[in-house]
Nucleic acid binder design. Sequence first.
DNA 1: CATTTTACCTACCGTTCGGTAGGTTTATGG
DNA 2: CCATAAACCTACCGAACGGTAGGTAAAATG
Lengths: 211, 211
Amino acid sequence: MDTAPHGSKAAWETREQILRAALKHFANAGYAATSVQRIVGDARVSKPALYYHFRDKAGLFDALVNQAHDGRFQVVREAAARGRGIREKLVEILTALFGYFHHNRELTRIAFSTAYAAPGEVPPGLCHFDKCRRNMEFFHSLMQDAQAAGELDNRFESRDLAYGFYGLTNFYLTAHLLIPHYRLDRKAARRLADLFLAGAAAKKSVKGRKP
Amino acid sequence: MDTAPHGSKAAWETREQILRAALKHFANAGYAATSVQRIVGDARVSKPALYYHFRDKAGLFDALVNQAHDGRFQVVREAAARGRGIREKLVEILTALFGYFHHNRELTRIAFSTAYAAPGEVPPGLCHFDKCRRNMEFFHSLMQDAQAAGELDNRFESRDLAYGFYGLTNFYLTAHLLIPHYRLDRKAARRLADLFLAGAAAKKSVKGRKP
DNA sequence: CATTTTACCTACCGTTCGGTAGGTTTATGG
DNA sequence: CCATAAACCTACCGAACGGTAGGTAAAATG
């Protein structure tokens, strides 16, 4: 999709500069509303420099989107591996996602807006759908394992569990884009995992986990 | 924002035709990637006809976005009024939203993609943020009332409850855009409401509501 | 030292963009 | 029957779009 520089250090830096500027503008204005002129203007390079390093505008965008999805997926997998038991896993995942999001806000914004965008807004051939499903399937298998281990209620379908938690996760991340004062830290992660696990309904007589 | 026709029946039909075509293209390609040329071409009217009925491209888009948000909000409010008790209310809301979505797929897609879009992708001055918050606040007050009535666990913050349910709702709607074979009907609404209320964790010894 | 490849440059291409100037037809009220 | 407004039309504008042709300085390679 994009041609990497073959060795020169200056070339590598040019490429990074283009990527940085592109990330900023794509995150702020989306794909269609961002022009390559603005990118090269902000990166202080010429237009053919961009077209030397990347096949076209879509290829440049693709590189960023893949980076975003792959980074997020890796973070989730590593976090899940750290926790023992479903509750710890969910807390670790949420905490890690909140941290990743905080330090890669623009990448995350690109990932979300492309996932929810109209199909024709994003360049054709971009397979963000597969990336989303890979993420989803991981959550799905997580829930299935936890059901098999007796940690989760077997009367729910594992798909509903995966969707429910994935939706909760995504919503808090996207909400944080609009409402930045809502703190997303480990404490919030614990609250949300507990809400998901214990349910919102008032408990009649229960000595269960504290919310 | 847009000038309504003053009485002519043909004029009203022209306006509707423009709105129909615009809805189709904005939903399929987003705001920036949709050109007014394509809209007027599809609506079989001339460009000045569009600019006679609407101030500009942004005004046309604004009309559609407002229609989408207002329709959704009204549906949610009416559904909530139909249910007695928080569980019935949530089931009614989910069912009504699924139905509204099914019959207004393109409007809903516009509402979602603009809500999650990059700020610069959508025309400036579009106050979709207020529309989202109005929706959110309604859910928030719903949860607060249910907590006050002892139906929901007081140990959770009402904001977390509202966000959690809102996130679950939104995720299922957006997921349905990508995975249409996942049926969204009243049965699904009941499952999701129960998941939200009862929680995902396995019950040790509980004669609570059936999931 | 000659040659090839890398890593760009200036200048420009054809197309499409959102939007409008200015004229024309159609319904309406006096 | 004439005037006025509504409801469009054809034709066009300047600007910006994504992308490229053709040339070049510097570095790697023989």
